[in-house]
Simulated scan of single mutants.
Amino acid sequence: MTLNEGGGLQLKELSERTGVPPASIKFYLREGLLPAGQAITATRARYSPQHASRLELIQALRRVVGLNIAQIRKLLKLADDGVPRLELLAAVQRTVLRLDEVGTEHGDIRTPAGDAVVRLRNWPDAPSDARNALNAHVALMDSLNIPVTTELLDAYSKALDTIADLDIAATTAPDDVNRLIMTAAVGMHMHSQLVLKLLAFAQASHAIRRYEDA
């Protein structure tokens, strides 16, 4: 982060601009989530608009997405280390959608169902946390004798391919890394919830049609 030459905000002004209490700002500074400002005196510092942007990101990740301090710190470190955008987005997706909690700890997983989806949609045949998570879930469904047919995978993946295209176009546009993480994380969280809610609505509607006469 860099400060504008000759400008900047003092902590009180930073708090007023972002709506984040001074105590919270000091906590984020101690935790390393927010870089130190430019020292004015031994007890005062000046902060830049980038500090405000980072604060808004931290608040969104905590309040909207529900991430904890450790998760936020890990994402911000990747951003500050300048990792490639694809790697950063993969980390955001893994964290926000909790892909590391669904059987992906054993490395790359391959299943016929996952390979079938790649062929059906002509997606890149490359390893990812998302692919591993799908394969782990399909394996779980198989163990519970819940059939996952090619027809089912084709219908689901076709609909979601269109949704994903819209999501990625919207969430990867910002050049500023804080805005990129904000848009991607909040977008992934809220859009995935929207898909689940729409699916629930559709299921309820089909059930009503089928059973209301009976």
Rank of each mutant, 00 (worst) to 15 (best):
Trp123Ile: 11
Asp175Ser: 14
Ile58Val: 15
Ala204Asp: 14
Ala155Glu: 12
Pro49Gly: 01
Leu61Tyr: 06
Gln93Glu: 15
His106Gln: 11
Leu199Pro: 00
Ser143Tyr: 05
Ile168Val: 15
Leu97Gln: 04
Arg131Trp: 14
Lys197Val: 14
Asp125Tyr: 12
Asn68Tyr: 14
Ala39Gly: 02
Ile58Met: 03
Gly6Met: 05
Tyr47Lys: 02
Lys26Tyr: 02
Val65Met: 09
Asp81Arg: 12
Gln50Phe: 05
Thr18Glu: 00
Val138Arg: 08
Tyr28Ser: 04
Val186His: 01
Gly32Phe: 11
Leu86Arg: 14
Leu99Asn: 03
Gln10Asp: 02
Asn178Val: 07
Ala130Trp: 08
Pro147Asn: 07
Thr162His: 09
Leu9Asp: 04
Trp123Pro: 00
Ile168His: 02
Arg121Ser: 04
Leu78Gln: 15
Glu87Phe: 06
Asp213Ser: 12
Arg210Cys: 11
Arg17Tyr: 02
Ala116His: 15
Leu3Phe: 08
Leu140Val: 05
Asp80Ile: 05
Ala170Lys: 08
Lys74Thr: 14
Ser15Gln: 05
Val118Asp: 04
Val65Leu: 04
Ala91Ser: 14
Arg94Val: 11
His106Met: 02
Leu120His: 10
Arg179Ala: 12
Val177Ser: 07
Ala60Phe: 03
Tyr47Asn: 00
His106Leu: 10
Asp129Phe: 15
Ala204Tyr: 02
Val177Gln: 08
Ala185Ser: 05
Ala136Trp: 05
Lys197Leu: 13
Lys158Leu: 10
Ala90Ile: 01
Leu89Cys: 04
Gly187Met: 08
Asp161Ser: 09
Leu14Met: 07
Ile69Phe: 04
Ile58Cys: 07
Val117Glu: 07
Thr183Gly: 01
Trp123Phe: 13
Pro49Met: 00
Ile181Cys: 09
Gly187Gln: 03
Asp129Gly: 13
Leu34Gln: 01
Gly66His: 13
Thr104Arg: 00
His206Lys: 03
Asn132Ala: 12
Lys26Leu: 10
Gly66Phe: 13
Val138Trp: 08
Ala126Asp: 11
Leu166Arg: 13
Leu199Cys: 10
Leu160Asp: 12
Gly66Glu: 13
Ile72Val: 14
Arg17Met: 02
Ser15Glu: 09
Gly107Thr: 11
Gly107Tyr: 14
Asn4Ser: 12
Ser15Cys: 07
Leu89Asn: 06
Arg98Glu: 15
Asp154Lys: 12
Ala45Val: 07
Gly82Trp: 09
Thr162Phe: 10
Val138Phe: 15
Gly66Ala: 08
Ala52Cys: 06
Leu153Ala: 01
Asp81Val: 02
Val83Ala: 07
Arg62Glu: 09
Ala207Val: 15
Met141Phe: 12
Leu196Phe: 13
Phe27Trp: 03
Pro21Asp: 09
Arg63Ile: 00
Thr149Asn: 02
Val138Gln: 03
Leu67Thr: 11
Glu212Thr: 11
Ile163Phe: 07
Ile181Gly: 13
Lys158Glu: 13
Arg94His: 02
Phe201Val: 11
Gly103Arg: 01
Leu196Asp: 01
Glu31Gly: 00
Gly32Leu: 10
Arg63Phe: 01
Ala36Lys: 04
Lys77Tyr: 03
Asp125His: 06
Glu13Asp: 13
Asn135Ser: 02
Ala207Asn: 09
Ser15Asp: 08
Glu87Gly: 03
Asn122Ala: 12
Met190Asp: 04
Lys197Cys: 06
Arg17Thr: 00
Thr43Lys: 06
Lys197His: 13
Tyr28Glu: 00
Asp108Leu: 09
